[in-house]
Write a protein that binds this DNA or RNA. Structure first.
Length: 828
DNA sequence: GACCTGCTGCGGTGTG
């Protein structure tokens, strides 16, 4: 066995590798007992930087003939990553002849393995934030972690910005109390605010180590062959099918990322229709497919037997250990960090180039593609911020800590305040949380189910009953998903094979006999019972595409800013790159009928049509903030003049449409004022309704609403009903309940992006209003018109209507374009 | 001849 200090070098030498400087510096830091955050691009050797550092620093401390006690805790955000990581960590142990053992602890861990771990922890445990918290609720937790030296938080950027990260912050505080010398290392991809990422992980300080930055990223675009025939709006992008097929054909294996599950289903279907010979060679992957189907795809990808996989962000992570040659992104990537993440799926090894190819789904996405490349080159990556003072997570944590050996309030207060998320927690808020877990706050004192923790005479607070303890363990975690129906094949003897899950609301629109597209198959609904939808294979040609209500990601500020810069350049006649040249005719048309948005102007357009009086405004603030602005302006104008408007938004701007005459131009300057923003936004929206929806999640995290036992999950309606009840009770009888205020704050911060909205208004006040009365909708307005009609019209009627609009526009557009071409010829 | 809207992640009791 090599001497401890040579251990890492020996291993590297055995594979003919040379350690990078950053790896050496991490080894040295761990040796000195320092903590830190390591930032490096994917595939650059982060894992071995910490792992070999740990072996080098700690392995020699133990008798080589006996297994070492728990030394290292390795946290990953995904179960799949946990088992892959465990395998990767095993190799150096075998080669170096070390006696360390590696274990995995997650929801997948078998009961036999759990029992083994209860008797003796492995020397390294790979686990998830949720499983870590569960381990902390055990009676013997302090003994389990008594010998712990190092915690590694893998993919910290994935946890930093959400409540899972907050839960982890609390768990780390607990581990640090037991082990004040604990060394903690975070591994993070590129973020716009790494110092913040470091501070949240290590509030007491740590080093930021920059790993290899020489990853070459190549971003290119599939430019549609005929821009005059390319849609002005839409997001499916199937028009690009032939070009995408050709790219897939030309490489050994590809990942095709789409933005929604329904889009993935449609693309998979379309690719198979165009290339029946690809059956069995291409696959589909998204979060609603059954586990076994996803596992098969991941396995086949690793074995290299698949030509292409159409997927959603379900494959953003977790394919670290497999080779992908080509990455295609259908539609907007929405943000630079996401684009980077996806590009990193290819060329996943030190020194290799990562490449991602953008596939626009409508004309203006060509500008976005050019913008994305430019923003990436300039290093404008989005930031992520930790939530603060999430009272629901705190309430859950208090009960978790009251399990096992219980807690003393004064000690736990200090511990909780040592985290970044709760460092500003006030005594009064703490007291509120304590009383809430003890007696349900001021409104639920009469219900024993909400007297979850009892203070014992010895000063220790413990969970009141075994029944409550069990219920609590079932509800640990901060991910709240909508209840969904299982989708299974119908068979006479009972349930057949599971296909995945669909949303109640989607199935509710179908009746038995209707066809649906799911998991790449056309199926026929047989019946629905017990939260299960039974189906059989169908021969129908047309089918409803399964839809889910997922999150809505707005275009990031960084990407939006880069987009406006590209448009600004175009307004000044500068067109750079293949994308901008391709989209030039369309931008010229926009400039001719109206104007192009620039960095110094705010473009507004008005139009009077058969539908009514339209206003189009383009703040480029992302769809959420745009929606907030739209409501705000509609509300402010309505205070001056009675008004009923309908609103349409996209990532670029919004449309207000009034049925009666409005002089939008006259109202705009006052309506855009940045004063009284918060009050006016709250008044303009149905904030109560939004907060109620948000409260549903909060109530589940805080453990007010029990989601049911694993085999008997409750339906959305049941959960909605009970959380709605709590919401009303608190509002009437316990207005000081901090969970109510949290629901409101989360709506403002996450659903309306109030901060961004505010910045946008201030920015807009410095812009010159560039107002144009349109005679017909231009390219920017067209997308919003389609968006607005979508709400009121069925799909077929919408297609008809668009076809008519396009036919009208077509003539005018080609006339304008040929006029312009003539002018340019004369000029030259 | 242009249409299909929104992602991901975790956890797991008691057995008449």
């Amino acid at each position: 066995m090599p001497s401890p200090s040579d251990l890492a070098s020996t291993w590297f030498a055995s594979r003919n590798w040379k350690p990078f400087a950053f790896q050496r510096s991490v080894w040295a830091a761990i040796q000195r007992g320092e903590s830190g955050l390591l930032h490096a691009s994917t595939g650059s050797g982060k894992t071995y930087a910490v792992w070999l550092g740990a072996l080098r620093a700690f392995a020699q401390l133990h008798d080589a003939r006996r297994p070492a006690p728990l030394q290292v805790l390795w946290i990953t955000p995904m179960r799949a990553l946990a088992s892959d990581t465990a395998r990767a960590l095993q190799a150096p142990l075998d080669e170096l002849g070390l006696n360390w053992t590696i274990g995995v602890r997650s929801g997948d861990t078998t009961s036999a393995e759990r029992a083994r771990q209860a008797r003796r922890m492995p020397s390294t445990l790979v686990t998830t934030p949720e499983s870590l918290t569960l381990l902390l609720t055990r009676e013997q937790a302090a003994a389990d972690f008594a010998s712990l030296r190092l915690v590694v938080v893998d993919e910290w950027h994935e946890l930093l910005g959400n409540k899972r990260g907050v839960q982890l912050q609390l768990a780390l505080a607990r581990l640090r109390r037991w082990q004040p010398q604990l060394v903690v290392w975070g591994l993070s991809a590129t973020l716009g605010n790494l110092p913040h990422a470091l501070e949240v992980l290590l509030p007491a300080g740590g080093r930021l180590v920059q790993g290899r930055q020489d990853k070459r990223i190549l971003v290119d675009t599939l430019v549609p062959s005929a821009i005059e025939r390319f849609p002005w709006a839409g997001h499916m992008g199937l028009k690009m099918l032939p070009q995408v097929s050709a790219e897939i054909e030309a490489s050994a294996n590809s990942l095709v990322f789409t933005n929604t599950r329904a889009q993935a289903e449609l693309w998979y279907q379309a690719l198979l229709e165009a290339h029946p010979e690809w059956a069995g060679l291409i696959a589909l992957h998204h979060a609603s497919l059954a586990r076994h189907a996803r596992d098969w795809v991941e396995r086949s990808l690793k074995q290299g037997t698949l030509k292409a996989v159409v997927c959603t962000s379900s494959l953003d992570l977790g394919v670290d250990f497999l080779p992908v040659e080509r990455v295609l992104q259908i539609g907007s990537a929405k943000g630079i960090a996401r684009l980077l993440q996806r590009a990193g799926r290819s060329g996943h090894a030190p020194g290799r180039t990562s490449r991602v190819t953008l596939v626009p789904t409508h004309s203006l996405e060509l500008v976005e593609a050019a913008a994305a490349r430019q923003a990436l080159a300039a290093g404008h990556i989005e930031a992520r911020y930790s939530p603060r003072l999430s009272m629901d997570v705190l309430v859950q944590h208090l009960i978790s800590m009251a399990l096992g050996s219980g807690f003393r309030p004064a000690e736990l207060f200090e511990e909780v305040r040592s985290t970044w998320a709760f460092r500003d927690l006030e005594e009064s808020q703490w007291q509120w949380a304590l009383s809430f877990v003890r007696n349900g706050g001021s409104s639920l004192t009469a219900y024993p189910d909400y007297q979850r923790v009892a203070a014992h005479p010895d000063g220790i607070w413990r969970v009141a009953s075994e029944r409550l303890a069990r219920r609590h363990r079932l509800g640990i975690g901060t991910i709240v998903s909508d209840a969904s129906l299982q989708l299974k094949y119908w068979s006479k003897g009972g349930g057949g094979k599971s296909l995945g899950s669909v949303e109640e609301s989607f199935i509710a629109r179908l009746k038995p006999g209707d066809a649906l597209l799911f998991g790449g198959r056309i199926l026929e609904l047989v019946r629905v019972e017990n939260m299960t939808a039974y189906v059989r294979r169908s021969t129908a040609r047309k089918a409803a595409v399964a839809r889910w209500n997922g999150g809505r990601m707005p275009l990031s500020s960084e990407l939006a800013q880069a987009l406006v810069e590209r448009l600004d350049a175009a307004a000044h006649g500068r067109y750079e790159g293949a994308e901008m040249h391709a989209v030039r005719p369309l931008l010229t048309l926009q400039a001719s009928w109206s104007a192009l948005p620039t960095q110094r102007t705010l473009l507004a357009e008005t139009l009077h049509s058969r539908q009514g009086w339209h206003l189009f405004l383009y703040p480029f603030a992302g769809r959420m903030a745009n929606l907030g602005l739209a409501n705000l302006i509609a509300w402010r104008v309505s205070r001056v003049q009675p008004l009923s408007v309908s609103i349409a938004v996209n990532d670029y701007g919004f449309e207000l449409l009034a049925a009666s005459p409005v002089d939008w131009a006259a109202h705009l300057p006052a309506a855009l004022a940045a004063d009284n923003l918060l009050e006016d936004v709250l008044a303009s929206l149905n904030a109560g309704e939004m907060a109620l929806r948000r409260f549903r999640e909060i109530a589940q995290i805080a453990g007010l609403v029990f989601g049911g036992y694993p085999a008997a999950q409750k339906s959305t309606r049941q959960l909605q009903a009970s959380s709605g009840l709590f919401y009303e009770v608190f509002r009437k009888h316990d207005a000081g309940n901090l969970l109510l205020g949290q629901a409101r704050d989360e709506v403002l911060r996450e659903e309306l992006e109030i901060e961004r909205l505010h910045q946008q208004l201030q920015k807009m006040s410095g812009l010159r209003l560039d107002l144009h009365a349109l005679r017909r909708p231009g390219p920017l307005a067209f997308a919003l018109l389609v968006e607005g009609m979508r709400e009121t019209l069925s799909t077929e009627k919408l297609a008809d209507r668009i076809a008519r609009m396009v036919a009208d526009l077509e003539k005018a557009a080609s006339r304008t374009m040929s006029d312009l071409a003539g002018t340019e010829r004369r000029k030259s």
